[in-house]
């Protein structure tokens, strides 16, 4: 662990690393990224730019679009938050505890990735509708409807976001050095202290990444949401649906405008979280 004793400042730029392959791997990664992601997205922005900045702003601030954007972002944030908490718990029990059926539980976590979103939406709507397994119980107990209300959107977003947190936290947790915990324990720290002061800080970057990814994924989600949302304007309408609506009217400019607004907002939130993460990495080090 010699590298870690170096102050992080010295690591910034001029010092050449002893490891080879920087140019090759970065070059390849950048070209691939440009080809598959950046150029196609640039075309989107370019098409939207036909409207001009004021035109974009006008589209984004239409009451209908603003309501949909708010719904999308607010519910995505809530769903990602819930997933950050429970995802951490699940990652923890999967890596630290042995219990019957653990491999199966482990496999189940990835299901939301593997299931086509439309299938998830259909299945969730069936379960959480007023006549579904869960929906009927909840409605009998609380009188609240889940499917076809914003709560339904929330359920769908929780479903699709779950693996992100678990799968980013799990490998880090698995790789975490037990010796550090042992050291902390030997120095007289209680278990709670060790978890809060030693383990959790090491997990913060991964949790943040998982949260950010779950959030960002939820904002753009379409397939699973439309089946359970109700899609009522100003109540349960999500922003991606408005893109589809614009496309149905052959209004590419309008569609790309909403897409660009969504893209910029989620790009910025991702960037902020990645910056916080690299800051915390520098602050807390690699444990």
């Amino acid at each position: 662990m010699t590298a870690l004793t170096l102050p992080s400042r010295e690591w910034l730029r001029p010092k050449p690393s002893a490891l080879p392959g920087f140019g090759l791997t970065l070059g390849f990664a950048l070209s691939y990224l440009a080809l598959i992601v950046l150029i196609p997205l640039a075309v989107l922005v370019w098409r939207a730019s036909g409207l001009g900045l004021s035109g974009l702003w006008a589209v984004a601030t239409t009451p209908r679009v603003r309501a949909a954007l708010e719904t999308s972002f607010y519910l995505s944030f809530a769903a990602a938050l819930v997933n950050a908490v429970f995802g951490l718990v699940i990652a923890w029990i999967l890596t630290r505890y042995r219990f019957p059926g653990r491999p199966l539980v482990d496999a189940m976590v990835d299901l939301p990735f593997a299931l086509p979103t439309a299938v998830a939406g259909i299945a969730l709507a069936a379960i959480y509708a007023s006549n579904g397994w869960v929906g009927s119980i909840v409605e009998a107990l609380t009188g609240l409807k889940i499917a076809f209300t914003p709560r339904g959107i929330f359920v769908a977003l929780v479903f699709i976001g779950l693996p992100f947190v678990v799968r980013t936290v799990q490998p880090v947790l698995m790789d975490l050095d037990r010796e550090v915990e042992e050291a902390s324990a030997t120095l007289g720290a209680g278990r709670l202290q060790t978890v809060l002061r030693v383990i959790l800080p090491a997990l913060v970057p991964a949790i943040l990444t998982g949260f950010a990814l779950a959030f960002a994924r939820a904002v753009g989600e379409y397939g699973s949401v439309i089946f359970i949302a109700g899609n009522m304007p100003f109540i349960s309408e999500i922003a991606p649906l408005l893109i589809i609506v614009q496309l149905e009217e052959f209004n590419y400019a309008g569609a790309t405008a909403i897409a660009t607004v969504m893209l910029s907002i989620s790009f910025l939130s991702l960037l902020v979280i990645n910056l916080i993460q690299s800051w915390s990495r520098r602050r807390f080090g690699d444990v």
Binding site: N131, F148, F227, N231, M232
Partner: peptide, 20 residues
Amino acid sequence: VSVLDTGARGSLTTFAQRNV
């Protein structure tokens, strides 16, 4: 109207299967 599905067939499923 409390549910606006995107297509006729999805809408009918909401009516018939979900009892809306």
